[in-house]
């Protein structure tokens, strides 16, 4: 199994720290060799910051990856946005010597250098490939009787160039990880559709973002589930806080618990709702919490 360094990004440690805690509890139980990537920064954010200036985006991503190279470890992300930025930047740096040279001309000023020697991983593809649904099924202690709406999120899969690829239209690896916890991954219309947050839309055009979120939630509600499971704190925030925003704005009564995969896995490994920070969401669904008392 590849040794990894844990890249936290911004939204997880600074808005949904329960996901950081859950990730550490799960990786420890699964005996994954993982240490903190100390001193890392914003990935930088693929929607807004990549839109502004590509050289800046590449240089900051290059520094984060170089920090992990210095530890001789692959870089593990737990956010689709961080994965999107860092995997895409790593791909460009590895594929194009000129790009690498330009990035290193900036990194040289801070005494660092990116070699292109390591990979950027995402927790879901990492767990699927390196641990596997079979082992997860073996180690869980509390099989979950839940109907789950899996939300892959866009940047886990796309752009497909340079990613080690599953299908971008009908992937299954995330569903398999969810079902390894005992839960059922329920099919629903527009399952692969965006949550609405990406590309800087949430920050500058919140009403437009919520239009996408409201549609996604209505599709999920049409099939009836116990919770939504995602692999990205930005989707997590949009689907969680977005319910509160929509209820306040439109008088809807959305109340679906939203969990990051590591929180779902943590429940199956026997940890409590509080230990995993599921109760720290904006949307509090007490009926869901009661299932795990």
């Amino acid at each position: 199994m590849a040794n990894v360094s844990l890249f936290l990004g911004c939204v997880i440690p600074n808005r949904y720290p329960g996901i950081e805690k859950s990730t550490k509890l799960c990786l420890d139980k699964l005996e994954v060799d993982c240490i903190d990537l100390e001193g890392a920064s914003c990935c930088p954010a693929p929607g807004v910051l990549r839109s502004f200036d590509k050289a800046t985006w590449l240089a900051l991503a290059g520094r984060n990856i170089a920090l992990s190279e210095e530890l001789d470890r692959d870089l593990l992300t737990i956010c689709n946005g961080c994965y999107g930025s860092l995997a895409d930047a790593n791909y460009e740096i590895k594929a194009d010597e000129q790009v690498k040279k330009e990035v290193n001309s900036h990194l040289g000023l801070i005494g660092r250098n990116i070699k292109g020697s390591h990979d950027v991983r995402h927790i879901t593809e990492f767990l699927h490939k390196e641990v596997g649904p079979g082992k997860i099924r073996d180690v869980i202690t509390r099989p979950l009787e839940l109907r789950v709406a899996v939300h892959y999120g866009c940047h886990l899969l796309k752009p497909s160039k340079g990613r080690v690829g599953s299908s971008v239209e009908r992937p299954s690896f995330f569903d398999e990880l969810v079902e390894a916890t005992g839960a059922e991954s329920v099919e629903y219309p527009d399952k692969m559709e965006c949550c609405g947050a990406g590309g800087g839309v949430r920050s500058a055009l919140p009403d437009e973002a919520l239009a996408l979120t409201g549609h996604k939630l209505s599709m999920i509600e049409s099939v009836g589930v116990d919770c939504i499971v995602n692999a990205c704190p930005f989707c997590h925030m949009q689907l969680d806080a977005g319910q509160v925003d929509l209820n306040g704005r439109d008088g809807t009564s959305h109340n679906i618990p939203v969990l990051h995969y590591t929180q779902l896995l943590g429940l199956a490994l026997g940890f409590s709702v509080e230990e995993l920070g599921i109760d720290l969401n904006e949307m509090k669904n007490l009926e869901f919490f009661k299932k795990f008392v």
């Binding site: 936290l8 440690p13 600074n14 720290p17 329960g18 950081e20 805690k21 903190d36 990537l37 100390e38 001193g39 890392a40 920064s41 502004f52 200036d53 050289a55 800046t56 240089a59 900051l60 520094r63 900036h106 990194l107 000023l109 801070i110 660092r112 230990e275 920070g277 720290l280």
Partner: peptide
């Protein structure tokens, strides 16, 4: 409340890392 450090082990806890980031942002003209 989760038993984590109040600041994450990112540039928030490493001022010298933040200085590096600031140097890069200046170098790129950001």
């Amino acid at each position: 409340a989760l038993g984590l450090d109040p600041l994450p082990p990112t540039v928030h806890s490493f001022p010298e890392g933040l200085e590096e980031v600031k140097k890069l942002l200046t170098s790129c003209g950001f």
